[in-house]
Design a protein around this nucleic acid. Sequence first.
DNA 1: ATGAAAGCGCTAACAA
DNA 2: TTGTTAGCGCTTTCAT
Lengths: 374, 374
Amino acid sequence: MFETNRPPTIRDVARAAGCSVATVSRVLNGKSNASAAARDRVVTAAEALRFRFSETGRALQSSRTRVIGVLVPSLSNPVFAAAIDGAEAVLRRAGYQVLLVCGNYDAAQEAAAVQTLLARRVDGLILTVSDAAASAALDEARAEGLPVVLLFNEAGPGDSSAACDNAAAAGEIARALLASGHRRIALLAGRFTSSDRSRRRYLGLSTALVAAGAPEPVLLEVDYRDEDHSAALAELLDQRPDLTALVCSNDMLAIAVMAGLRSLGLRVPQDLSVVGFDGIAIGTMLAPSLATIAIPNADLGREAARLLLASLGQRHTAIGSNQAGPPRARTLPHQFRPGGSLSRARTDVRCGRYNARSDAHPPTSCHMNLENDP
Amino acid sequence: MFETNRPPTIRDVARAAGCSVATVSRVLNGKSNASAAARDRVVTAAEALRFRFSETGRALQSSRTRVIGVLVPSLSNPVFAAAIDGAEAVLRRAGYQVLLVCGNYDAAQEAAAVQTLLARRVDGLILTVSDAAASAALDEARAEGLPVVLLFNEAGPGDSSAACDNAAAAGEIARALLASGHRRIALLAGRFTSSDRSRRRYLGLSTALVAAGAPEPVLLEVDYRDEDHSAALAELLDQRPDLTALVCSNDMLAIAVMAGLRSLGLRVPQDLSVVGFDGIAIGTMLAPSLATIAIPNADLGREAARLLLASLGQRHTAIGSNQAGPPRARTLPHQFRPGGSLSRARTDVRCGRYNARSDAHPPTSCHMNLENDP
DNA sequence: ATGAAAGCGCTAACAA
DNA sequence: TTGTTAGCGCTTTCAT
């Protein structure tokens, strides 16, 4: 009555079925051959005891856990949620479980999280790190000789990855903006130290604008954790009233920025155009809808899982070798998605003073032609 | 050169340090006393080998995995992401890791997912199930005698839970609507079979409306997976042009509904008021902002984790007992959050025909007084 | 202070 | 066809 309810072990089943543990293992694993009689007794006993193999025991004996460690910066960005969903589905169908950890856009936390995954002896890793080019977490994983696939991070020569071409995608934003007459553009970006994607998007945007003869974009790095960017926005727009478009390094930020602009009494897209990056579903439901780069986030997760499974397969095939096949970098296609948040650039400069706390006075416009750059 | 890189074991460290595995264990776990000399040799050897205890070995010997299984319906609803974040932080600080699985709002998938968690021998479970009153997943967990805390599901007598009072919260929506003159109200709800929260919210809304002498709300159950509810919305509004307010059983749905209304050429809140439920951050960034019930989602996750840790503690204290302390149901406070999506009810009925595919003709209004109910 | 050895649950090699 | 047993990595008791 008052005993600690330890789960039944294979020995309990063997005892109840009147056979050895080997027979139980064979029957319940569908291996080799067992007499119909034994089979029956084992199955019956197992069901009666509600027996379930201990994955711990199996892991110890086989030195494979059938667990994949997944590290993402955060769960509160739907981009990562979608990618995890995709990866998890593929891995589950292959018999793997996902041990999920968050790095919170912080290299130290990422390294600590990977440590815990390594201690759990995960069979492989899918990682989104702050900066793939200098990541303690990634170094640890590599040192362990474990199959690793980067997700969202574009891999260097030695690593596998599933990502999009951030710079090229940002270039498409530049083209779309230029086509609508924008030249005075700012990028609100998550801190580069927290996200190499953010940095690449900046470089891609900047390069494309300059190549087209437009000025470099103004850069404003913001913290991923903040939700209210009104103050930073106000200062930026105060200093640069000539800006006609704001690009945001991701859609969540873009949504916050649109809200911030609204609270400053500015209209999107009449006063300022806004473009995001990621293509999260909610962007299409906004008014105005969010112009953005659509990334196949769930597909990226699926692809990362597939690459990892491939490594895992080779690893077991190529006996005596630590090689998991050559690294494979998969780049999935992006697509510019038009939206109501992007319209033709104003040709006059905003010069009215607006106030973050007052929504009574929308800014006035004065006719100061901007057609020629400095 | 070509050897499979098995992680070093405690025996490797012992050999390198010239001592027994027991000494290594003691030193590296900071237990009892070891000579300074031995200590040094062990630490040095461990570092040189990059040794890390195998949690698999530890789990097998201690029959505790230090892993908590967490089941949620989906990652794509920020509500669950926030709760997971909260729970994970509390658990991590207590030395536990989270094994996350998704049930996809489906009882069968939930049961299968819990099976995998039980096979991993998790030390405890935090579950959000479709229907806590009839859940195979929950039954399995209970049968295993494992500490379980329900999250978002309001527990029955025997279970622990961290939830809000869904019916009471829905009652507050009713009050807010009535105060603004609404009486003809519909609820768009996630399928009751997929969410007992959805059902309770319906009951709470209905009860409060009827108690106030208003008609029962029209109920429209929708699938959580769908993103476009325009067709269902169009049909509903066609049949019931007298409706003045739409309540949605969660914020994500409300956002989709607002987008759907817009595509039907209807304005929020002028033509219809919309109220959500959950209080996700994005709701405050919309135009109009979303009126809703704010739930402390991250706190719910934290609280679930705390309750579970308490059970775990008692479980180890009360030797020889399977009791994990009495079940504790924690109800966290909700709060109505006003928003631009809710305004005073129209007093005329929409009678113009609108078309889902045409945004050219906003519906006309005809003056047909609705003050007296049938 | 240190070591030897049992045992946690399981699989697979080997014996019968 | 079935059973016996070693061993996966670790902690802990019991000797020494």
